[in-house]
Design a protein around this nucleic acid. Structure first.
Length: 142
RNA sequence: ACAGUAUGGCGGCUUGUCGCUCGCCGCAAUAUCGGCGUGAGGAAAGUCCGGGCAACACAGAGCAUCAUAUUUCCUAACGGGAAGCUGCUUGUGAGAGCAGGGAUAAUGUGACAGAAAAUAACCGCCAUUCCGCUUGGAAUCGGCAAGGGUGAAAAGGUGGAGUAAGAGCCCACCGGACGCAAUGGCGACAUUGUGUGCCGCACAUCCUAUGAGUUGCAAGGCCAAGUAUACCGGCAUUCAAGGGUUGCUCGCCCAUUGCCGGGGGGUAGGCUGCUAAAAUCUGGCGGCAACGUCAGGUUCAGAUAAAUGACAAGCCGUGCUUAUGCACGACAUAACCCGGCUUAUAGCCAUGCUGUCUUU
């Protein structure tokens, strides 16, 4: 994988996978964004370590125009910033599934969404590193 | 010039960087990569009508429910549209809006106010009788709809004749209703003549005519991993035990359990339906118009946790300020597809018409 292209297999499409994510995920917040995350270890050699989805609730943003615009902005922010987490995931041998949920009632501009996205991805990356260290420790114990 | 009105149209543009959907080409390849093309609206919205399409249902008749209700035309169809007719409301005006089956059938309702909301006597007018005798007062299962105020609506209007007082009770003119006739119009209807004194209105129930089977692409059709497994075949299995054949034993067949193979239905998931059509553009012809017709050109979204974007710069438009700077650029995101309706919409353009002012 090269460049900033966004492939279909990076999107989270399956209904069952989404239900599992919301059942087991841990949430973290960087207002106005909330992320629901599932980390799991994976030894398989794939390019695809992260899959994501975006939700803008109808209760918060009434008009379809606004929801579409926000979805596009969030996707753009993820696309441009995901290089923050991908190397960490590869080194920690983890896969991650993320759902981004928009929480504000106003439509935020791109700059604020970009900043939030950077913060969130940073948190996820550190989580992945911690998890990897733990597993290493357990292996030593065994 | 300004303000308005009707109809029709537009609904920001360009460049750069990084990206998305689908299609085509290249490669073994449906992944990936490279190249080329392609990609939201006038309302895509509300889901209010009418169709197409699909599945299911369907002898025939009636009832109920809902919708519609002036005329002629347009249309695949419509509860939609066009051009008319009648009445009312509104605007100085161009114009705009609303309503429009019924019987001289029936029943009910009409807030507040008012005597009374439809078999009208509160005040009032008149008559008769009694009291008083001055102008008045009282009574009558008396007469009177001319005057009063109320109201959305008050018993056709004006004048005369008439009377105790009055009244379409009668007469003249005017208005309306209904009947008849003539003329014009495809028709609703209009105009004219004539006859009948026939003379409140609104709404609902009701009646009449016409239409409506139900569910919606999450319809419907196809493929189908894994898991469990109806059923079929093969092999194996039992220390004992089951059923059939037989008087009994063996044998054979069935059954049991396990493995392997096949297999139907079918879950996750995928494919299809799925976009070339009542399509659209240009021109001619017919029509007042909606629209029709002929000829030629064009190919124009098909996503599915859901594609057209993000950022930067410049231009354009509007407003505030004035060589500049700042702010703003509406409404609204296809989900099977069409025709309408309704609602939202900054600003701009074209054509016709109207009002006001100025100039010639």
């Amino acid at each position: 994988m090269k460049g900033n292209r966004l492939y279909k297999f990076e999107k989270l499409c399956s209904r069952t996978a989404i239900n599992a994510l919301f059942g087991n995920g841990r949430s973290m917040v960087a207002y106005p964004l909330r992320a629901v995350v599932v980390l799991r270890s994976s030894d398989s050699v794939t390019d695809n370590r992260a899959r994501f989805m975006i939700t803008v609730p109808k209760k918060k943003i009434r008009k379809a125009v606004g929801r579409v615009l926000l979805r596009r902005r969030i996707r753009e922010a993820y696309r441009l910033n995901r290089q923050i987490i991908l190397p960490q995931l590869a080194s920690a041998a983890c896969e991650v599934e993320i759902a981004f949920i928009y929480m504000d009632k106003e439509i935020a501009d791109y700059a604020t969404i970009d900043a939030c996205m950077k913060k969130l991805l940073g948190k996820i990356a550190t989580q992945a590193v911690i998890r990897a260290e733990k597993e290493v420790a357990e292996d030593v114990d065994n």
